[in-house]
């Protein structure tokens, strides 16, 4: 009995230590906490957006609600890769079956964890996507697909199941925030949308790295195939989108391949880049980082434009007359407007 009590106490203390040492993503890198927020909002969404920063910064579910009565949520995270998107999609189906799944195709340019940049940078992005996922077989598969060589050498997937093994040395960097948010989780997004209210105009042309490979990689296509199959199994319409953004460049060769694929698979593919004028995006006022991503004004314009397509081509219903749903979304809208007014 004593032994079991000791084990229990030990487990509890280790759990507390793990909670204390894990990053809280409440400061400058708020996007690291986005994936975790979904579980409190799962269910009742007609549309789920999945992808990288081009979804969680460029689309606003609140605008989709206000303009069209579409209920949606964004499962986005920084530099989310296609294999992560796939497993997030698989996980999402465990919580709800949306009518439409929107996938941002920019991440198809990466074909392996190594192709996304330096190992340490990739690892940091992996963490921001995977640490927030709940324990499940989906997480396990997502982790194993995402590990960098360096991570595989040092414990690999285990460090995602027990983040203490990764963050054990944060004891020297702990701040008051780590204690404050130990038992209390602070949501930072509006249905997965990370609001950016600042303006930093695009003043000079962003120079992209030259295209190294005109063909999108095999791994990307395999995961896209899996996405198509998964969505069909659940009776969900998969929509491919290329969200507005000047950088990184979405080369026309890639666009041609995705267009061709969408045609073959009878998928809706919306490339928003050529429609930027129609959308009304002004890169002097609608970006917060010189043209890489949209700010709230740009995101609202993009969402209003894209929502029309979703409504018309996917036949999504308007929920604004449904009392319960409306009450929930009106509360969300108030929080959104207040945040916008405060500029946070």
């Amino acid at each position: 009995m004593k032994k079991w009590c000791a084990f229990l106490c030990g487990g509890l203390i280790l759990g507390l230590l793990q909670g204390l040492l894990a990053p809280k993503y409440t400061g400058l890198t708020q996007e690291g906490g986005l994936i975790r927020e979904y579980y409190q909002n799962a269910g009742g969404n007609d549309v789920i957006f999945i992808g990288d920063c081009e979804v969680y910064e460029n689309f606003s579910p609140i605008t989709l609600w206000q303009e069209y009565g579409i209920t949606s949520y964004i499962r986005g995270s920084p530099q989310q890769t296609i294999w992560q998107s796939y497993y997030l999609m698989e996980e999402t189906f465990r919580y709800e079956t949306p009518k439409v799944m929107v996938f941002n195709v920019l991440s198809m340019k990466y074909d392996s964890p190594e192709s996304t940049g330096s190992q340490s940078r990739r690892e940091a992005y992996n963490r921001m996507t995977l640490d927030g996922m709940r324990w499940s077989s989906c997480k396990w598969k997502a982790v194993n697909a995402s590990l960098t060589r360096e991570e595989r050498r040092w414990g690999g997937a285990l460090t995602y199941l027990f983040p203490l093994l990764r963050y054990h040395d944060r004891w020297s960097e702990l701040t008051a925030e780590d204690v404050r948010y130990l038992f209390h989780f602070q949501p930072v997004s509006h249905c997965g949308y990370l609001m950016r209210t600042g303006v930093e105009p695009m003043t000079e042309a962003l120079i992209s790295a030259p295209m190294t490979d005109a063909e999108l990689g095999q791994t990307s296509w395999e995961y896209l195939d899996k996405m198509v199959r998964l969505c069909r199994e659940h009776g969900t319409q998969l929509v491919l989108v290329k969200s507005p953004g000047l950088y990184p460049v979405w080369w026309w060769e890639w666009d041609r391949q995705v267009t061709e694929y969408a045609r073959e698979q009878e998928l809706l593919y919306v490339n928003m880049l050529p429609a930027q004028e129609e959308i009304g995006i002004d890169w002097m006022t609608d970006t917060y980082d010189g043209g890489l991503h949209l700010n709230v004004s740009g995101a609202e314009k993009a969402s209003a434009w894209f929502g029309k397509i979703l409504q018309e081509q996917c036949g999504l219903p308007d929920h604004r007359r449904e009392e319960t749903v409306s009450a929930l979304w009106e509360a969300r809208c108030r929080a959104y407007e207040a945040a916008k007014a405060e500029g946070r």
């Binding site: 004593k2 030990g10 230590l17 690892e123 360096e150 040092w154 093994l165 990764r166 054990h168």
Partner: peptide
């Protein structure tokens, strides 16, 4: 026994927290 458990656990925590291991 509690002294034994305590010391063993302390050692475990010391290894987990202060050990140099893992990515980075």
């Amino acid at each position: 026994p509690w002294l034994r458990y305590g010391l063993t656990f302390l050692l475990l925590v010391a290894v987990l927290l202060f050990g140099r291991y893992g990515v980075g």
